[in-house]
Amino acid sequence: MFRYKKIHTIIVAAGLVLLSPCVSAEAVVIVSARSAATALTEEQASDIFLGKNSALPGGGAATPVDQADGSPLRDQFYTKVSSKSAAQMKAYWAKQIFTGKGQAPKEAGDSAAVKAAVAGNPNLIGYIDRSAVDATVKVLLTVK
């Protein structure tokens, strides 16, 4: 009995350690450091990533770039910014595409790939883990 409890405790502790990076990731919405944009609200970010708006506040195009489908950061971003789960987002874009009202944002992969794409094009907007931010991009919104 004692051995079972000890093994169970070790397994649970290891699981928590493995899950902690996913839980503690902080998403930030970014644009190129060359962009004139300085700030963004969650509602504005939601509108851009849901295809309801294609401009940044104060002017400038805003073409959204997504993390890879199934990414924990992607799920966290949409849950917090648009109050939609991953399944709801898939249904939303399926309807938009079917009715001809829009196209889902292009997927760039992980935070490094999104950052590289956004840094190279002032018309792109994306979201990455805060730890990936450097001087090539500018943070417009911290997703809480």
Rank of each mutant, 00 (worst) to 15 (best):
Q76Y: 08
T99Y: 09
T99H: 07
D110M: 01
A87D: 15
A117E: 10
Y92S: 12
P72D: 09
A91F: 08
T63N: 12
G109Y: 01
S85K: 09
V65P: 04
S111T: 05
Q76I: 12
A116C: 05
Y78K: 08
W93R: 11
A119S: 10
K80W: 02
A112K: 05
G59V: 11
K90I: 11
R74A: 11
F77Y: 14
T79Y: 10
F77P: 10
Q67G: 01
A61D: 08
I97K: 14
D69M: 13
V81F: 00
P72R: 08
D110N: 14
S85N: 08
P72A: 09
N121I: 03
N121T: 04
K115S: 02
T99F: 14
S82C: 13
A91C: 03
K95H: 08
N121H: 03
T79M: 13
W93H: 05
K90Y: 07
E107P: 00
V118D: 04
P122G: 08
S111A: 05
P72H: 07
S111C: 11
A113M: 09
V65L: 03
F98G: 07
P105H: 11
Y78Q: 14
S82A: 15
R74D: 09
Q96I: 01
G120K: 10
A112L: 13
A87G: 13
W93Q: 11
V81K: 07
V65K: 02
T79D: 12
K95M: 10
A68W: 07
K90Q: 12
G59M: 10
K106D: 11
T79G: 15
G109P: 02
S85V: 10
K115L: 14
G70P: 01
A113K: 14
F77I: 04
S111W: 04
N121L: 06
D69W: 14
D66F: 00
P64E: 04
A94W: 00
A108P: 06
S85Q: 07
V118T: 11
P105F: 05
Y78F: 15
A62C: 11
M89G: 04
Q76D: 14
K115H: 10
P64A: 01
F77M: 06
Q88T: 09
A112C: 00
K101A: 12
G100E: 07
M89S: 03
A117M: 02
T79P: 00
D66Q: 03
S111Y: 04
Y92M: 11
Y78D: 09
Q96L: 02
Q103T: 15
A62F: 05
A68P: 03
A113T: 02
A68R: 14
R74P: 00
